[in-house]
């Protein structure tokens, strides 16, 4: 048994704590966004934005193939980040209701942007090989670690990642606090927001850009599936348990924090994959919340209309 040994053992603690802290930062940030995501039906925005990373990677290789090597080293992550945030902005733009009618449903917009950026990424990657072949230097193309980008490993992060995750968390939490009133009005009733000068277009764009930021940051560390879980489940769990806004916010945060800690402990104790353990922890909480709601004879609060 290595029960809780990793908390004190200096070697193991060095592996455990950065992962925990990064996980907590991501979880708290996503939980703060989660209720908005559930109520505005943006559950798949994380998938859309994260798959856009393929497009960003393709673009980075293409730029690098023209001899601009920075694009495949230090420049790669910023290129992917900008690409993903722009993809998020595009989804927002496509799905925003115009003055009357119009606009695609968000899921349609996500579907279109997702496949477009993946296909675009694949073609750009191909073109970068073509360019390098023409130069006779195709051997020098560094291998892209697709897997690491799609399924990050939260237990292999370092202290530098902790600082970045904490920075993004603070940035997003401040933005959400600053905009909490217009954001609430817009989320509840976009028409009324427009009527008092809170632009629904701008609110939607702001929210989606914030989500894109955390998704890009988190998928490198935690993986796409875990990010989606953090974006959707804390909100859906909280909304089953309460009808109060502040309690929703608090429960979301507590659920996310609990899932990170619980999931990682399970992962270390039983040697399970860490991301999957956290997701299963969240799913378990969701089931318990459903049972609790059923026992209390409450109707499910989030319905499909």
């Amino acid at each position: 048994m290595k029960t809780l040994q990793y908390l004190s053992d200096p070697l193991l603690a060095g592996l455990f704590w950065p992962g925990v802290l990064v996980g907590l930062a991501i979880a708290i940030t996503c939980a703060a966004l989660s209720w908005l995501i559930v109520l505005r039906r943006l559950a798949f925005i994380g998938q859309g934005v994260s798959h856009a990373a393929f497009g960003g990677l393709g673009l980075a290789s293409l730029i690098a193939s023209f001899g601009l090597d920075f694009a495949n080293s230090t420049g790669r992550f910023p290129i992917v980040l900008i690409f993903c945030v722009l993809a998020g902005a595009l989804i927002s733009r496509m799905s925003t209701k115009r003055a009357v009618g119009g606009g695609w449903a968000v899921d349609t917009a996500i579907g279109i942007v997702l496949v477009a950026s993946m296909a675009g990424g694949a073609v750009m990657l191909h073109l970068s090989h073509v360019v390098l072949d023409a130069q006779g230097t195709s051997q020098s193309l560094p291998q892209i670690q697709w897997e690491a980008i799609l399924f990050g490993s939260i237990t292999s992060v370092g202290w530098g990642d902790v600082a970045v995750a904490a920075g993004v968390m603070v940035l997003i939490l401040i933005a959400l606090f600053w905009l909490r009133r217009p954001m609430l009005l817009w989320a509840f009733d976009p028409d009324a927001a427009d009527a008092v000068g809170v632009s629904s277009k701008r609110m939607s764009l702001t929210l989606i850009v914030l989500i894109s930021l955390i998704v890009v940051m988190a998928m490198k560390l935690a993986g796409v599936v875990l990010v989606t879980a953090f974006l959707v489940l804390p909100g859906s769990i909280a909304l089953q348990l309460t009808q109060s806004l502040n309690t929703t916010r608090i429960i979301s945060m507590l659920v996310a924090i609990g899932a990170v800690l619980g999931g990682l402990i399970v992962s270390f104790e039983l040697d399970w994959p860490s991301g999957a353990s956290i997701v299963l922890m969240l799913i378990t909480m969701h089931l318990l919340a459903s049972v609790w709601g059923w026992v209390r004879q409450r109707r499910p609060l989030v319905r499909t209309s």
Binding site: P182, L184, F188, D191, L239, T242, S244, T248
Partner: peptide, 26 residues
């Protein structure tokens, strides 16, 4: 402005009073 009522998501975790506060709060 009183918008169309049917666009409102009834699952929203706000009370009647919080709704009335929303626009002045902005």
């Amino acid at each position: 402005f009183v918008p169309q009522r049917l666009n409102i998501v009834s699952a929203f975790p706000v009370t009647a009073r919080q709704i009335v506060e929303m626009t002045v709060a902005c």
